[in-house]
Design a protein around this nucleic acid. Structure first.
Lengths: 118, 118
DNA sequence: TCAACTATTCATGAAGTATTGAATTATTTG
DNA sequence: CAAATAATTCAATACTTCATGAATAGTTGA
C-alpha cells in the first residue's frame, strides 16, 4: 500500500469511536451489522455514526451493502491488513525490533524461559 | 498496549511529514539523527520540525538525547511495535484474514503457486 | 397513499491541528 | 565576553475535524 492510501486509513483509525467501531465489526465478521445496531451498541447518535462510518468506508477499512431498509457494514480485512502492513513493512522497513514487539502474545516464542525437566 | 496509549500514537502517525520522519529515523537506527540534519533531509523548517518531533516523542514513538549543542533523535522500536501490535492483536483480534494481509512480502508463503518440477 | 422506520445530509458552532516567522534559550567557539 | 550555532517556544492565522440537532430521502407495510 502506498503512503497516499495509508494516510487516510491512519487518520480514520486515530479516533476512539472509530476504533471501537472496528473492534465491534471485526467481532461481527463478514455478516456485519446494520447502522442502527451499531448505534445502539456503541451509544453514538445516528448522525455521528453515519459520519464515522463514511470516514472508515472512504478509507477503505470497511464496506457496506444494502439490505431492505438497512445498510449493513462489515470490515474490509484487506484494507485493515494493508494499513498495518504499510506501517510494519514500508514505514518501519521490517525492522526486527519493531517486528518482535508486534507479534501476538499467543504466537510469541519465549526463548528465555528455561525448560523444566523431571 | 491500551487504547489510551495507542490513540495518540495513531494520531501522531496520521501525518505525512511525521511518517517521512519515522522512515528516516528507522533508517538511521539507534545512532539517530540530530534535528538540524533531519530538517535539511526532509526540507522542513526548524520550528515545524520541532513541533513534529515533540508530537512523536510525546506519543512514545521516538526518543531524544542531548549531545553538545545538538539533540539527537532515534526511533523507539517498542513504541512503534506496540502501536502496530495494538492494531493487529487488540483491535483486529488477530483476525486471520487481516494477519494474512499484513505479512512482509519476503516472509509470505505462497501456497497457490504450483511447484514446478524437472 | 400515509405512517413508521432507517439512514444520511446539512447548518452551526466548538475544539483541535497545521503553518509561518519572530523571539527566546542554551551551548560552543573565537 | 561576544558572535555563531542549534533547537525550542510563542503568537497569529488558516484549516480541519468533531459534535449536535433539525431536515431530508428512501423503504416497508397497513
Amino acid at each position: 500500500m502506498e503512503q497516499s492510501k495509508a494516510l487516510p486509513a491512519l487518520s480514520a483509525l486515530a479516533n476512539e469511536a472509530r476504533l471501537d467501531l472496528i473492534k465491534l465489526l471485526i467481532g461481527a465478521g463478514q455478516a456485519g451489522l446494520c447502522a442502527g445496531a451499531i448505534s445502539k451498541n456503541l451509544g453514538i447518535s445516528a448522525s455521528r455514526l453515519s459520519f464515522h462510518l463514511s470516514t472508515l468506508e472512504q478509507a477503505n477499512l470497511i464496506q457496506s451493502r444494502k439490505s431492505a431498509r438497512n445498510v449493513i457494514y462489515s470490515v474490509n480485512p484487506a484494507g485493515l491488513g494493508g494499513t498495518i502492513s504499510y506501517l510494519l513493512n514500508d514505514c518501519c522497513q521490517e525492522n526486527p525490533e519493531v517486528v518482535a514487539c508486534c507479534r501476538a502474545p499467543s504466537s510469541q516464542d519465549r526463548p528465555n524461559l528455561p525448560v523444566l525437566e523431571s
